[in-house]
Simulated assay, not measured.
Amino acid sequence: MKILYHHRTASRDGQSTHIEEMIGGLRANGHEVWECAPSVGGQDGGGGGSAGWVGRLKALLPKPLYELAEVAYSLVAYRRLVHSIRERRPDGIYERYNLFLLAGIWAKKRFGLPLILEVNAPMAIERAEYGGLALPGLAKRLEAYVWRRADWVLPVTEVLAQHLVSVGVDRRRIQVIPNGINEAHYRNLPTAEEAKRSLGLEGRLVIGFTGFVREWDRLDRIVAWIARQPVERNVHLLVIGDGPARAEIERCAADLKVADRLSFTGAVPRARVPELSMAFDIALQTALVPYASPLCLFEYLALSKTIVAPDQPNHHEILSHGVNAWLYDPADPQGIEKALETLATDQALSARIASAARDVIADKQLTWEQHARRVAGLMNAGLTKGAGAAS
């Protein structure tokens, strides 16, 4: 099958990882895949921000004009899609949803191609809450317009699927496909002790976090908890990544006189993250929006680490408390600290949870190749019944 993968992502972060892995999974299943997307305008160092000229434009334009420019960009994307479709003659379109992006729906209607829409967040809500929207009404209307007209909509969690239903998407056209792992990245890794030795952390109980560190991750709480631990526990916080909250976390560690118990690797190539993460004894999944499917969670499972995560519905879709993870109450001011205390003092419990973690990948079929197989099956079903039913 020939598939055109359409997106508007121009940054190098978790979004690009999802894109690359899904394309790789489809190709591994024997399909021809072409990418139809803007050129990456710059590197964000894993920061998750807008890349290159996109970020500059966003900073310069008043918010209403920037949002109208996003809508207008659909014309540019549509021309690119039309050219790719005429050149490649794909059997269908797979699109990563983004707010104000209408080109995929237009191309689907014009060429009669099935369109599968991957949805990672309710962008109209997310941007209104975190980045601000000048035109929220327009954003919601266009979001619903796109969601309702795709042949299949693939939210990353059941929580997000319920939101799609609430705005009028037919439940029969929704298939939940979470994030996943590439098994090739988890072969021939060092042991935990070897990984610790390479980082100068031999003999320490390592609490680990991977990703772009922001204020809401509240790693300062972890530093404060470490400062209260007996010296003989030898607890250490290892952060694989960087971010705007780094300076404050390092300042907190210095103030509490535990700077020697905190390490940041800084931004590292994604290929190195698994080998470095093998040094973790306990892996942190910090607070996040209720509809998310965080990449690092699946990586922790693949590494067979003891996971500490907030007790919330999207995690219940993947994790079981006390079996393959330890879930804490995010509303409890000491929730994550209590979880760490429990696992730090009960090594047998921690070991049992870590041992069960890796099985989740196989039990729930959480590899990118398996996800791609499902996507191809849906695309084939769209071809069989004929595209346009959702138009």
Rank of each mutant, 00 (worst) to 15 (best):
I240A: 00
K58H: 14
D255V: 01
Y186L: 12
G48H: 12
P114L: 04
V82P: 07
A267Y: 13
K140I: 00
Y5H: 14
L327M: 12
P178V: 08
P64I: 14
L297W: 14
C296N: 12
I336H: 10
G14K: 09
D332W: 09
G386P: 05
T342V: 14
P178M: 10
A161V: 02
A224F: 04
T17D: 15
P178H: 15
E202Y: 02
V258K: 04
K385S: 13
L199F: 04
N324E: 06
G382E: 02
Y300V: 03
V33R: 14
G42E: 02
A356G: 11
P330K: 07
V289P: 01
N188R: 10
E317T: 05
P90D: 09
M1T: 00
E194A: 11
D329H: 00
L138W: 02
R358K: 14
N314P: 13
R251H: 00
L189V: 11
E193F: 06
I105W: 01
V323E: 11
G112S: 08
L327Y: 03
H315L: 11
L238T: 01
A267I: 12
R374C: 06
E248S: 07
H316F: 11
I282Y: 15
D217G: 08
L102D: 08
L68Q: 13
E215F: 03
R221A: 10
L102M: 09
K338V: 01
C296I: 05
G112R: 12
D311N: 04
D13L: 02
F280T: 00
L60P: 09
D260E: 02
A354I: 00
A279M: 07
H83R: 15
H321E: 01
V289H: 07
R89A: 15
C252W: 00
W34C: 14
M278A: 07
R261S: 03
E126P: 14
D242W: 02
F264R: 03
E248D: 04
T9H: 07
R197L: 06
S11Q: 08
A107V: 06
L349E: 10
E35P: 08
A28R: 15
E232C: 01
A302L: 03
V119T: 11
E70G: 14
F100G: 10
P274G: 06
N380H: 12
T265K: 06
A348I: 08
Y145T: 01
L340Y: 02
V40M: 12
V76R: 11
R56K: 10
G55P: 09
S74E: 06
